[in-house]
Design a protein around this nucleic acid. Structure first.
Length: 292
DNA sequence: TATGCCGTAAACAGAG
DNA sequence: ACTCTGTTTACGGCAT
């Protein structure tokens, strides 16, 4: 059985104000959303064997990671080696690494009712992965092909009372949810560990405490039964408090999870999210907070 | 090499 | 008639 973190809309109001866009980042805590950039903190190595299916936070780690290293609280980010050759950022519209099954899964899970018509699945993919805005229409065929062929998805007849739109609604078969999650996790993990922030441009301005915010989040139990309506907890923390340090430069925003938190984290990850990942991560945070 | 998964293309039928 | 949706088949690439 799968249990999801509480609904993002019920997550903790942080100590800082956010200026995020209403969607898909509307659920983020303030430090996560300052300018729409979504941040993620937990590395797969920090997720217990069983918790990884109860928490989709890793999904947001679509940015490129620095080599993991402990960083004390409130310290400046490590300097990137100047000798490292700089390479242009991959285009934001590069093809996402996720299979169509994963994309469909994310789209459906990101929907309020956990069911979507094909048209809305298209729309979600386009909205979250700009690559498909300009891609030829063949991918839609692939989406339909996947829906039909994959056992993971089930077709539901529309309620006759809401005869708006063609076709049926599609949902995820609960028994295949763990498998889909695992595929997502592996895909994400693979692409995270194979990326290298060293190749990214150095921020143009120094990171100073002026751009730092501290957010404290309460612990949360992910069991569905435990989710309260007035929940003010965050899925990022599953035991005790965590402190998130937010850094912002003109070009990039970072969130640093200290290595000496009560979560017994071994490493710190600093994420830089490109525009595509920003969008996707926002929605995926919604997904992570799907609240079953 | 065999197998399975995935992406892509295409044909076809039915519904709106 | 046209578009969209859903199913099915086929094929090639890739990883295991």
């Amino acid at each position: 059985p799968i249990s999801f973190p509480p609904s993002p809309s019920s997550l903790s109001p942080s100590t800082a104000e956010s200026s995020h866009s209403p969607s898909p980042l509307s659920h983020c805590t303030a430090s996560q959303c300052l300018t729409g950039q979504t941040i993620q903190c937990l590395s797969p190595s920090n997720i217990s064997d069983q918790d990884d299916l109860t928490c989709l936070n890793w999904l947001h780690q679509r940015g490129n990671l620095l080599p993991l290293q402990p960083i004390p609280k409130m310290t400046a980010l490590p300097q990137l080696e100047a000798s490292q050759p700089t390479q242009p950022l991959p285009p934001a519209s590069s093809k996402p690494p996720y299979s169509f099954s994963s994309l469909i899964f994310m789209a459906i899970e990101d929907s309020p009712d956990k069911r979507l018509p094909v048209k809305d699945i298209y729309e979600w993919i386009v909205n979250n992965f700009p690559f498909y805005r300009t891609a030829s229409g063949g991918w839609r065929n692939s989406v339909r092909h996947n829906l039909s062929l994959s056992k993971s998805f089930r077709r539901i007849q529309r309620d006759k009372s809401q005869c708006v739109g063609k076709g049926s609604l599609w949902c995820v078969c609960p028994e295949y949810q763990p498998a889909l999650l695992e595929v997502l996790r592996k895909t994400h993990s693979y692409h995270s560990t194979n990326s290298n922030l060293i190749n990214k441009p150095t921020p143009t301005c120094p990171l100073t405490p002026d751009h730092e915010e501290l957010v404290t989040m309460e612990s949360v139990d992910y069991q569905q039964e435990e989710v309260c309506e007035d929940m003010e907890k965050d899925p990022l923390s599953d035991s005790g408090y965590i402190e998130l340090h937010y850094y912002q430069s003109q070009q990039y925003q970072y969130l640093v999870l200290p290595g000496d938190t009560e979560l017994d984290l071994e490493t710190v990850e600093i994420l830089q999210l490109d525009a595509e990942a920003q969008e996707a991560a926002g929605s995926l945070l919604d997904l992570a907070g799907g609240g079953y």
